[in-house]
Design a binder for these strands. Structure first.
Lengths: 123, 123
DNA sequence: GCCGAGGTTATATGCGTGTGCATCTAATGT
DNA sequence: ACATTAGATGCACACGCATATAACCTCGGC
């Protein structure tokens, strides 16, 4: 009974912290850079890869997005010119996703906002 | 620089904990009880009020949902027979939301699942 | 004191968009 | 041939933003 109450309290704390940060992130990234949080995180994951490039499935593996949502996110980013998709020659089902220069640039700008929001709202 | 790295790490931790719990909650509440997480949280908030009843605005104030999303959530819950809406006689713009017996019952069932998921996935 | 115009508040709704699930297609592997 | 895997896509739905609607509130002029 005690443990259950603690659990609930802990969850409410988590919910509250998460929503506080996520809602501000979402809003400011959209407003200042035209990126959704998923867009930003996708760019961010790519940026941390060697050569800013990797396969969809690897990208998916450490993101909290369904495979279909990731597929569409990458499609959006490609349409905006921030990433490029290319076929794997060794497994022709596969798709490589790679940051473009514009993508790196946008990510750098948005990163500043991202950090500022964290600094302000993550307690 | 140090501080920034810490901030990012902290945020990733938060993201990861939140998504781990929220995705399981969402799935299991839906599967076992036909409730979305927002549905459940709305019932839960109502349950913690005197007489399981309160005005939309008060309900909104401690939930992480936009006013419009809450309005639709309550509409869904009413359609399912878990809450009832009624006009305030003293402020006729206002709407009271009140749990029905079916709502209390469904909440009680779902609560068990909720707790179980927290116990399993909240570390 | 009473009245009506103009602002404000509570809730609902139109709209565009992002999501997950199920499914489709095409390439691989066995 | 048959099952499996990578990624894309149809679909239904929940969300937030902007706006609509209706009730309430305030205040200056009478």
């Amino acid at each position: 009974m005690e443990a259950e109450l603690t659990l609930i309290k802990q969850w409410h704390g988590l919910l509250s912290s998460y929503n506080e940060v996520a809602s501000h992130l979402e809003r400011e990234l959209q407003e200042l850079h035209g990126l959704s949080l998923s867009d930003f995180e996708t760019l961010d994951r790519l940026r941390s890869r060697e050569h800013d490039k990797c396969r969809m499935q690897h990208l998916a593996s450490d993101m909290y997005l369904s495979q279909s949502a990731l597929s569409r996110t990458v499609a959006r980013l490609e349409k905006s010119g921030f990433v490029e998709r290319s076929l794997c020659q060794d497994d022709r089902r596969g798709v490589y996703v790679e940051l473009t220069d514009a993508g790196r640039e946008r990510h750098a700008e948005a990163s500043a906002t991202h950090l500022a929001v964290l600094a302000e709202h993550l307690k």
